[in-house]
């Protein structure tokens, strides 16, 4: 199994991701589906809005990219296609959520990140973009990762 580990991941990262994927397949977090692919380093996860929330019956997609030294560093998590309208989600898919940046801990998993994101959606009381959306998105052109731009977020404490 380890022989098939992708070039971009350390041995520890590949090993852990195999375990996480296996655990996910047996016990996926409610409201999420992992799109099956051979790429261990990039997961595409389908998110379904929870019942009785603003996002009920809506489907979104998360793109999760793992760094070489995962889990010592957080994965990069962004919404693709049409990101949900939410005061902490920018129109380019970047998510303002502290555990993805400064509050990351290697004991967290894709599963626990997904649960955090869903609870962030579920607790929302209005469907709106962050106040600084336009400025932020303009600054992010040239394909900047949210990890490079986190200090531009209007509010780092979510």
């Amino acid at each position: 199994m380890s022989s098939s580990s992708p070039k971009g991941l350390s041995r520890i990262a590949a090993n852990r991701l195999h375990k996480e994927l296996k655990e996910w397949q047996m016990n996926p977090p409610a409201g999420f589906k992992h799109k099956v692919s051979d790429n261990l380093q990039r997961w595409i996860v389908e998110v379904n809005g929870a019942p009785n929330t603003l996002y009920e019956n809506e489907t979104y997609y998360l793109q999760v990219d793992f760094p070489e030294n995962y889990p010592m560093e957080a994965p990069q998590v962004i919404f693709t296609h049409n990101p949900p309208l939410h005061p902490h989600i920018y129109s380019n898919g970047h998510i303002c959520l502290d555990i993805l940046y400064d509050s990351w801990s290697p004991a967290m998993t894709v599963s626990s990140i997904c649960i955090s994101i869903l609870s962030m959606l579920s607790s929302s009381t209005e469907k709106a973009r962050p106040v600084d959306n336009d400025r932020y998105v303009r600054n992010c052109r040239n394909g900047k990762s949210p990890k490079e731009t986190r200090w531009w977020f209007h509010d780092d404490k979510v």
Partner: peptide, 18 residues
């Protein structure tokens, strides 16, 4: 080994309890 790595690279806190 992984916890020492964490203390060095991520931060001086318990990964689970912080």
């Amino acid at each position: 080994a992984i916890l020492l790595d964490h203390l060095e690279k991520v931060g001086k806190f318990d990964p689970l309890t912080r």
